[in-house]
Nucleic acid binder design. Structure first.
Lengths: 164, 164
DNA sequence: GAAATTCACTTGCATTTTGCAATCTAAGGA
DNA sequence: TCCTTAGATTGCAAAATGCAAGTGAATTTC
């Protein structure tokens, strides 16, 4: 294997350990693609709009798999295609991703529509429950469509019920 | 400046934008050090136990400052020393860090005592409020002491009151 | 008040990780 | 059969990282 770094000599702090696994510019983006957009294949990740190189993509998928965050299964309908899917450990990243989303939308310039973000902030529990539901039912409908500068992007989760 | 990378050509997704700023192995660790451990000086970060190189540390502090997450102020008592402090934007990362901490403690092998993590999980709002209080009052007492394999590490936040 | 120490960096250099384009293999389709 | 598609791997240049050493200003020690 050419890439896939070796372990770093760091502390046992959960934050530190987590960053060893996910602390780079791509890994959490792939988790987002799977969790929020319903992407499953190499191709979909590749065309995700962020411009990841194929060697890096292959490496990250491998690392996520090695880290127990992602599992691969052969696609039934097409022998060439592999489906990547979050594991229970992977879907448990939903709260992390949601907080990142909320923070980013608040403090950075993004294409996210404020209304949708506010709604998610008010209904964290519902957003996470809906993400988990889609994962359980293998529902590939995007929870949140990709943000385009011009999109109306209606988000797709039910209202009501507060966090946890 | 030798380091401090240029902007990447990526999407306007809040997650993506956030990862451009914080998506590396060190940045969030420094935020953790400031928020949770009360560290303020270059030396403290350096001896934080994770073994960051001084050039990388200098670069990350600079980037965090450029990103509006950290501010620097001259230490009153010692003209050599600079104090780094989170900005409002920086302290707003508390929920992100907390979710990472909880996730890591659940799914990775860490030195975090399960009891303390469970307590934080049940009292997210209190943990975040306490972190914010310490920040406002410039109270450098660690909210959570560094995890050593052998430590009893009592965490330091009050119980009661649920999230938000 | 001279020398030693501390703090916050910076520099040089080797190693690792990225990014990019091209290529490869196996499966499917025409 | 030949062509296309999915999922990679390879080579190479560029950038980021890790490491040891050095710098200069402010403080402490003698």
């Amino acid at each position: 294997m050419r890439n896939s770094s070796k372990v770093k000599p760091r502390s046992g702090c959960p934050v530190s350990v987590t960053l060893d696994l996910l602390g780079d510019r791509w890994s959490l983006l792939l988790v987002r693609d799977m969790m929020v957009r319903g992407y499953r294949t190499f191709r979909e990740f590749q065309r995700s709009g962020e411009g990841i190189a194929t060697n890096i993509l292959a490496d990250r998928l491998q690392r996520l798999e090695a880290g127990g965050i992602v599992m691969r299964e052969a696609a039934k309908l097409d022998g060439r295609s592999t489906h990547y899917r979050l594991t229970p450990k992977g879907i448990a990243l939903a709260p992390v991703l949601l907080e990142i989303l909320i923070w980013g939308a608040h403090y950075e310039e993004t294409d996210a529509p404020c209304g949708a973000i506010d709604a998610m902030e008010q209904n964290r529990g519902a957003v996470i429950a809906e993400a988990r539901r889609r994962w359980e039912e293998r529902d590939p409908t995007p929870l949140i469509p990709p943000f385009h500068s011009a999109s109306k992007s209606k988000s797709n989760f039910p209202k009501g019920e507060s966090r946890r």
